[in-house]
């Protein structure tokens, strides 16, 4: 196992703090009506950021669910820029540049897991180095797509890492109602693949687990299911009120295990982190997301874009609809 270096852990913490800071801004932007529904990252920062830092953005892919983008800074500033385009409802939000190996958000839970297996398989067929990491949650692990994809990944020995962020809640459904399994990682046995459980609030442990899984995948040893145990510290989305169902004492306990505080404590001991640094990171993160928001809101959009990119060439029916749309747009 390769422990992350102190510098790597510092970079992970910077991304985590920036993500938490920006998540608060997103919440307010949604309340102001400037963006649509968003899913806060609070509590998932260590798992997402440490995963990204254990990967090589020039060859490894990330297929997110929908909670991850704020902590994917390692994959380039385009991730945040496009996330904000997505949040303001611009269709370019899901079109990241070719160079950025991040797929668009996936709203239909678990459907991205078969895509990840297919992508990893396709890379192998073309002798491309690299692995695919696909994020999903404990709720998604109940979907048929998870099962079908994990099974196929095992058969093909695809270089894919199935990263289940077990945050204990699928909106209001707690884990014990999601499954009778003692551990989600145990399911790997049924697919003949490697399975590990990791403390998802421990950035170093996540880094280790992903690094190990990646090395196995690149060595042709097949997929790994990583269950990263975290706790959803915020609401499911801006449309959710978790006070209706999350026991306050559970939330309180989870807050005492905040992934950011844990890593801060470690880096303070090493003399690499203090309040001043944190304050600077937060200021920078806020100005960065404000810029991205302004740019997203100013990003041009023609009504005709509605018809673009459905088929490579409009069908005769669509061509007529496009003409009708243009004439109606002038009304």
């Amino acid at each position: 196992m390769t422990r992350p270096s102190d510098d790597q852990l510092l970079a992970v913490l910077v991304d985590m703090v920036a993500a938490r800071t920006q998540a608060r801004r997103l919440w307010n932007l949604q309340r102001q009506g400037r963006i649509g529904t968003v899913a806060p990252i609070d509590g998932h920062e260590a798992t997402v950021a440490a995963t990204a830092h254990a990967l090589d953005p020039s060859q490894d892919w990330i297929l997110p669910q929908y909670r991850e983008p704020l902590a994917l800074q390692r994959y380039g500033p385009e991730v945040l820029d496009h996330y904000m385009l997505y949040n303001v409802g611009h269709p370019d939000g899901s079109r990241l540049p070719e160079s950025v190996r991040v797929a668009p958000l996936q709203i239909s839970l678990a459907t991205q897991i078969p895509h990840a297996v297919g992508l990893a398989w396709g890379m192998t067929l073309q002798d491309e180095a690299g692995v695919v990491v696909v994020f999903f949650g404990d709720g998604s692990s109940s979907e048929g797509d998870f099962h079908e994809a994990a099974n196929l990944a095992g058969v093909l020995r695809a270089p894919v890492i199935l990263l289940c962020m077990n945050n204990q809640w699928a909106i209001s459904t707690p884990l014990h109602q999601q499954t009778a399994a003692a551990s989600l990682a145990d399911r790997a046995v049924g697919y003949g693949i490697n399975g590990v459980t990791v403390d998802g609030n421990d950035a170093a442990a996540v880094f280790d687990a992903v690094d190990e899984a990646r090395k196995r995948a690149l060595a042709g040893q097949g997929p790994t299911l990583i269950e990263a145990c975290v706790y959803r510290l915020g609401a499911h989305t801006t449309a959710d009120d978790p006070t209706r169902y999350v026991p306050p004492e559970d939330l309180e306990a989870a807050r005492r295990d905040d992934p950011i505080e844990r890593l801060e404590k470690h880096l303070v001991e090493l003399g690499l982190w203090d309040d001043e640094i944190r304050s600077a990171v937060e200021t920078q993160a806020l100005s960065r997301i404000d810029e991205a928001t302004d740019a997203a809101e100013a990003h041009p959009l023609r009504a005709e874009a509605l018809m673009d990119h459905c088929l490579s060439v409009d069908s005769p029916r669509m061509a007529r609809q496009r003409l009708a749309l243009l004439s109606e747009a002038e009304l």
Binding site: A103, T111, I113, P114, H115, A116, V117, G118, L119, A120, W121, G122, M123, L125, Q126, E128, V132, G144, D145, E148, A149, N151, L152, V155
Partner: peptide, 28 residues
């Protein structure tokens, strides 16, 4: 056998893996 693949009996992942293969630049 690399280009003609007997898959597990699971229609969802046949279609879903095709999406991933297409993302990788192949023609499923």
């Amino acid at each position: 056998e690399e280009r003609v693949v007997d898959t597990p009996l699971a229609e969802g992942v046949i279609a879903g893996a095709a999406v991933g293969l297409a993302m990788a630049g192949l023609i499923p």
